[in-house]
Amino acid sequence: MSLREIVSKPDLLLPGHSACPGCPSAIALRMALKALGEKTVLVIPASCSSVYQGIYPGESFNVIVYNVAFASAAAVASGIRRALTKKGYTDVNVVVWGGDGGLVDIGMATMSGAAERGEDLIAICYDNEAYMNTGIQRSGATPPGAWTTTTWTGKTEIKKPMPFIMLEHGARYVATASVGYPIDIYNKVKKAASLRGEGFRYIHILAPDPPGWRFDASLTVELGKLAVNTGFWPLWEAEVINGKIKFRLNPPSNKLLDPSKRVPIEKFIEKQGRFRVAKEFHLRKLHQQMDFYWQLVKAYLSISKD
């Protein structure tokens, strides 16, 4: 579907929300809601999204929204889904919309449980690589070398490979996406919604965050593209059908298996203030992270060849 067609769909993210200028979460949510439509219940753990939707009695997300405790989203959504199923309402999208803190860290066990049970949900993580709502603290999804207010001299560990972890749960559909590619977000959410009734679906959207990553608000989409083109964040999707994994790289990542085809990572790093503290060993770690992610990609590609 073309961007023009997507944009012409009703906007369920209403004007008047209070996200920062250039907010990647709002861009991604706008796309996701266009794909999901009105018959959707959003379950939102503590995060920027629980704040920028507006203050009571205002509400700028024009679907049913349930704001829940930080670690609880996938479990609350499981309860909603089962109740609706029990009462015969099967064509409603029950969707977890959360940050990397809520889904990758504190809610990890909850996500794991819901995925293992094959709950008929879509979980979408907008990953801005830190706890932004509480003032830019490190999360398990923060990359090496990044400054945060709990890693003043740069994080030393690599980013938790959450989408791969969800895939290993046997989730029905898992995809990565980036705010640099909004049509891809739309298509992947649409795909996930089309698999309603078939189990747990997970989409992990990299979300370059102007205040948290320290860049100008006009550059959100550009950084989203650079993250992919440098090979920092490969775009892929995978389906698990009867225990068989069908994994594929999406453009433009499908051209980037060969590292020489990638835009140098420095182009991505130099545009962000958060990497200013990064030392040589941080950058080595960052390269290791990229190698690690691409090794996983290759492994899954080779598994799904036969």
Binding site: E38, V51, Q53, G54, Y56, E59, I64, V65, V68
Partner: peptide
């Protein structure tokens, strides 16, 4: 459509 539990 309604929202529950946002900031009050």
């Amino acid at each position: 459509t309604f929202g529950f539990g946002n900031i009050v």
